[in-house]
Computed example of a mutant assay.
Amino acid sequence: MNDTRSLLQHFLAAIAYRTQKALRVAPQDFADFRAGTHVRTPHELLWHMTGVIGYARTMLHGGDFAPPRLPTFAEEVVRFHATLGALRDDFADASLQATISDAQFLHGPLADAMTHAGQLALLRRLAGAPVPSENFIHAAVDAANVGEKQALPVAPDPWWRPDQPPLPPAPNPLEAGSQ
């Protein structure tokens, strides 16, 4: 396996980490939260993310990928992580020849899936249960782990509180806001 494929595997693990961060300790009714008309619910968004990652796999295997919606959010979470795992394994298989470049995997379906992980976090805030901030540089992202069981934050922001409005970007925004 080449360095690019290793980096793609790491990116898949980062998607898994950020997705689980957005889903961890979410309210029971979060899966069906709808922020507005024609806005995907978290359940629909994760279903779409599975479709995006499955579509990426077709670039290595051919065919089509159109997953049916699963009845429960929990089942959708399991399938999403299984699909991430399948693509991670595909990237390790030197016998598979892709119809797109590794850069296209990154700026296409993988970037799309990461964007949707961020949307899940935004939906958590809109649903009244914001996701705690952290310094992701220090996150325990392991390329071998694309499953549901992700590490807890290594470097959570100690100043974060769920009841405060967004703060300015700074190492310690509470101090930056007082200047």
Results as ranks from 00 to 15, higher is better:
F11G: 01
S133T: 07
S178E: 15
R124S: 13
H38E: 15
F136Q: 00
G62I: 12
A117K: 09
P168G: 06
Y17P: 04
V131L: 10
G85D: 07
A144W: 07
L167F: 05
L46D: 05
Q104T: 04
P156K: 09
L110E: 00
V52Y: 01
R125M: 06
G147W: 11
P171M: 06
L174G: 00
R69P: 11
T83N: 09
P166G: 06
L8M: 01
P67D: 06
S178N: 13
T37N: 14
D90I: 08
P168Y: 09
L106R: 13
L106Q: 08
I15E: 02
T115R: 12
T83P: 01
D93M: 06
W47T: 06
G108S: 03
A14T: 14
A92Y: 03
A144E: 12
V154K: 12
F65M: 07
P67L: 02
W159H: 01
F136L: 13
A66I: 03
L23T: 02
L12H: 00
P132E: 14
I15P: 08
A13K: 08
I15R: 00
W47Y: 09
G118N: 13
H43S: 07
Q179D: 08
D32C: 01
A82P: 00
R18S: 06
R24N: 09
D93R: 08
L70Q: 13
L12S: 01
K21S: 14
A14F: 14
S95L: 13
P171T: 03
A140V: 13
G62L: 11
L110V: 00
P169M: 15
H107C: 04
L123E: 08
T19K: 09
F33H: 12
A74H: 07
A111C: 05
S101T: 15
L7Q: 12
I53H: 10
T41L: 14
